[in-house]
Design a binder for these strands. Sequence first.
DNA 1: AAAGGGGTCAACCGCCCGACA
DNA 2: GTGTCGGGCGGTTGACCCCTT
Length: 325
Amino acid sequence: MGKPPGCDKNGLKKGPWTAEEDQKLIDYIQKHGHGRWRTLPKNAGLKRCGKSCRLRWTNYLRPDIKRGKFSVEEDEVIIQLHSVLGNKWSAIAARLPGRTDNEIKNYWNTHIKKKLLRMGIDPVTHAPRLDLLELSSLLSSSLYNSSLNPAGFVGSMFNPSFFSLATAFLSSNQTKNLEINNLAGNIQQIQNPYEPYQGNQVPVITQVSQADLNQFSANPGLPNLWQIDNNVSDSKGFLPTTMQNINGYNHGFYLGDQNLQQVCTFSEKIPNLVPFGSLLSTPSSSSTPLNNGSSTEDIERDSYCSSNNMLIFDVPKGLNVNGCM
DNA sequence: AAAGGGGTCAACCGCCCGACA
DNA sequence: GTGTCGGGCGGTTGACCCCTT
């Protein structure tokens, strides 16, 4: 059935609300309460449709609305609830006092979604993006080959599938955050791998938020990829997760130390340990709420996220990668 | 200083559902 | 059972703002 749109008929006004209109709506609702939205505009002397009045009231004029920037805690709550509820914005808003579904929806689309993508997490499924995993296996095999035959690494970088995945990966992680270090300073790192990664595993570091890590352990409904097998926690407290086979490689994750501040992916079936990632620690979430309307702080927060999402590659000295990226 | 490109967010749109006559 | 109404929902749009060139 549905209802016919009412706002574009009878010369009803559309677009931004004026202060005068807002005041009329507030005055009317304070006197008579809300409800009966269809007849409300006429009674209140507004040339708006009832729906427009209702939206204006619920999303903007309601006295209990908390305006301003979202705090880190709210971020985490939203991410966590979204992983369970999906795009049920009203259900999420119901658990965030003072926030409207519209506000949360906008905030998700403009901030959180991008943040998760930068972290290599699919904002829809809240699982690691499989294309990134595939890239990691390609990179791993490339680097493994290079350890046996340096020329092989260079050659593999020109593999079309490597490039398409690399492009997708780099674009999602923001190319500006890619740091190319030289290999000379990295040999030490290769010879001193992170102990938890035994055998045939190549660690690749992916940053996740505390909220996502909480989600790891809190939500049994998440895909196998994210399930934790506590029985096989190694001596350093790393928790291998269930593996998933992708293109002949087993991919899995290690959650970092007891504080669950780090997560590492690995790809098995790689004979030698050739780490090309550097362990990046995610600082604990600040409990300090952001100031309202502080654009500077917002920028700082964004750059904070970005700087912690760097994937640090190590490439042989003398290898010019500029043309490749 | 001006243009334009991207990001943000208030507002709108179309659809759906439950209540009720 | 059917049609109408009131209200809610998620998705999309477009005006505005800010930053970069």
